[in-house]
Structures are given as C-alpha cells and as structure tokens.
Design a protein around this nucleic acid. Sequence first.
DNA 1: TTGAGTGTATGGCAACCATCGAACACTTAT
DNA 2: ATAAGTGTTCGATGGTTGCCATACACTCAA
Lengths: 117, 117
Amino acid sequence: MPIDPPAATPRHRTPPEHAALAEVTLEAALAALADPVRLTLIREVASAQEWERSCGSFDVPVRKAALSHHFAVLRAAGLIEQRDAGPRRFNRLRRAEFDARFPGLLDAVLRAQDVEV
Amino acid sequence: MPIDPPAATPRHRTPPEHAALAEVTLEAALAALADPVRLTLIREVASAQEWERSCGSFDVPVRKAALSHHFAVLRAAGLIEQRDAGPRRFNRLRRAEFDARFPGLLDAVLRAQDVEV
DNA sequence: TTGAGTGTATGGCAACCATCGAACACTTAT
DNA sequence: ATAAGTGTTCGATGGTTGCCATACACTCAA
C-alpha cells in the first residue's frame, strides 16, 4: 500500500460514502433497522429538521466508537446521508430515496408503536 | 419438574406455541424478517393457500434442524401459525393479525423487489 | 502552536446466531 | 412390530455483531 505524500494544501477529511439505493438489499435494510440503537437514531433524525442533528447529538447508551459504527451501517443501508461541516458530521434521513426503493417500509417502521409496559 | 405419567390414551405431540401479537416488539419483527432463509419462507407461505405448505415443503438450503429453528423464530415474531396434521406441521401467514400490530410492514416487505443482477 | 471538540479506525472481547449431526418423539403405513 | 417420514431438541462449532478502550485524524478557536 503506497504512502500518502505530504499534502501541499491542507487536506480535508474524506467525506462519507453513501450507498446507491439500487444496490441496497431488503435484507440489509431490515437488518439495519432491527437494532434498538439504530432505531432510536432513525426515529430522532426523522423527527428533526434535515441536517439538524450531528452524530454526537443523539442520546444513545453507547460510546462514540460504537455510534460511529451504527452510522456506517445506516449509511450502507441507504437510510441516512451525512455531510461534514467543520468538525461535525450532520445527518438527514434519505426518506424519499429509501421510499422509492422500499415503498412503505420506512413509514411502517416509524409508525410502529412500542408495547406499553 | 414432575414426570408425565404414562398416558392411558395415545399421547399427541404438544402443539406449537404462538406469540401474542401485542407482545411482539418491532425489533423482533424486523430481526425475524432480516434473514434470507426466513424471508424465503415468508414469501412462499404468503403466495400459497393457508395451511397448504408443510415445514418440509420449502426449498431452502438448510437442513431440517436449522429449518425448525427458523420456524420457531417466525412463530415468536407472530408471523406464522402452525398446526399439526398427522406427522406434518402446516403453516399459514398471520397476515391480518400482523398487519394490525405493524400496519403496512408486511406489505412493504412482500412488495419489495430484489435487485436485478 | 496549542488545546478542545468531534468523529473514525483498529484490535480485542463477549454475546449472539445460524448451522450441522445425532438422537429422539410422534404419526402413518406395511 | 417394524419401518419410513416428519419435525424437534441437544450440543458443538464457526461466523457475525455489538461493544469498549485506545489511538488517530481533522477542524476550529484561542
């Protein structure tokens, strides 16, 4: 593996990669949603403005390394898009695109009520 | 645990237990659907008559022990109901009940098209 | 330049899950 | 009684996953 030459101009963080929805399988989409932490993330980002929430602004009981992993899974499933702004990474739900790929799935998940205890 | 007394009349196999839909969590439902073998089972049982397909009649690339496990997961997720008839165990999709618990979810999953290769 | 803030990458670990072979239980037919 | 067919349970195994701590990379402000 070649070594990067020192950058003459200040390097920028490599922007996150996003999945093409056409290549997301149903199984991957369901697996991404079948996790309590990721479900919380999706619900919160769904109920916020686009690009409003940065990755660290979510109240989930995991450390930031695990959180970063969960966001990578959500990106790979085509569920969220991320954009860097300064030191933070902001999120939006890819609702229209995901709906086009899996019609009704995201709505059904977001509408589902949890059981009363 | 008490020992069963010898049965005077011929004993019957204990019928399968089915989940109460109210107690099925969204996470459990999604996890049950996020497996290729189980997805195949659900699709095939959905496109057949009720009580038409016995457990062994599905064309999935696993042995019967794993198959039995997958059916247990689908039962626990409230997705299928099973009934014994002779030596076989027949299946039906609990479509109406599952729809009432998670409106639109099963339809979205069954409507989802797989990616063309 | 230094430091604080934010997020990612890596390595390790524990828990979970899908699978199998084997043994078992039950039903039906011979 | 025997045998064939169907399905479950058990124990073991290998792979995956979720998590953490640590180290690193980048941005911005002081």
